[in-house]
Amino acid sequence: MARPGRPGAGNSKKKGPMKGTGGHGRKSLEGKGPTPKAEDRSWHVAGKRKAAQERYVAAGGKGRPGGKPAGGGASRKPKAGDDTETVTGRNSVLEALRARIPATALYIAQRVEMDDRVKEMLSIATHRGIPVLEVMRPELDRMAGFDGVHQGVALKVPPYEYAHPQDLLEEIVDRGDLPLLIALDGVTDPRNLGAIIRSTAAFGGHGVIVPQRRSAGVTSAAWKTSAGAAARIPVAIAPNLTTTLKELKKQGVFVLGLDGDGDVALPALQLADRPVVIVVGSEGKGLSRLVTETCDQIVSIPISSATESLNAGIAASVALYQVATLRSASGE
């Protein structure tokens, strides 16, 4: 007499596909072949790196833009908490690389247009061992900020290293140059700072001085607006602007303040052929009282009566241009 089995129990002695399964249970053990290499999987980081390398080589480049940097250094993407600044825009990034700023990573948008600037960026980064990471454009948009324009490239750089005002002056004098400096009093917009740095470079200035408090610093916005000039023009930080200006006066530097009610019109300036520091105030409040009392002269820029004032960046540009013109005329 056959022993009744448990309801639903299978017969372990039966071979072949079991009833109702179609043999799926047995076939699932047969495997699906070897796992593809990471670099052969398009969605994998290694696959994306390989694709970036192929596009780079096809564009005429050399090196390893998506992998470890030349020289064997480890590739590292900065963490969100890293104390770094992001330089964006092709001119700014290229100037920073040319100036050998110790960058930590170069970001390139996927399918970026490979013009001469981008090729030079990749070449410099490869030779210096800077990791090159290919990212999607939305990621670059996030890195550039709300109103940033990255042009498909971004560079991570360490926090800006400010000079000391006295060291800056000594370096200028040691080179045999006639000092021309710009000091900012209450200018808090980093884009104005970037524009002033750019004008300082354009008109032969030697550096910019900013106070430690209530002032714009060299941020990514300033880097961008400077169009790369921040890599060439030093910015010094003054613990106290009034005290720093007084120390500069002791060193033979004349302090000129820009103000609409100045007693000397800019075209009639007589001190352009001397060591000078031009102090620019904020558009709203202008120069502070203590800074005004420290200035050797208060200089005004003649403008149309229909215009109330100039912003700090434009005022600094006009003053620098005038000083450069007067120095050129006098042979300085």
Score class of each variant (00 low, 15 high):
G8E: 14
N11R: 12
N11L: 06
K14W: 13
K19V: 13
K27M: 10
L29C: 08
K37T: 00
K48Q: 12
K50I: 00
A51T: 03
A51D: 14
A52V: 05
A70Y: 07
D83P: 02
V87H: 07
A96P: 08
A96F: 13
A103N: 06
Y107G: 03
I108M: 13
R111S: 15
V112I: 12
R117P: 00
T126P: 00
D141T: 07
R142Q: 11
Q151I: 05
A154I: 03
P158L: 12
A163Q: 12
H164K: 11
R175M: 13
L178W: 09
I182Q: 03
G186H: 02
P211F: 09
R214T: 01
S215D: 11
W223I: 04
A230Y: 01
R232K: 11
P239Y: 02
L241N: 01
Q251W: 00
V253A: 04
G257T: 05
D259F: 10
D261R: 13
L269F: 04
E283M: 09
K285Q: 12
G286A: 14
S288A: 04
R289K: 05
C295F: 10
V299A: 06
I303V: 14
S317Q: 12
V318P: 04
A324N: 14
R327I: 14
S328R: 14
G331H: 09
G331E: 13
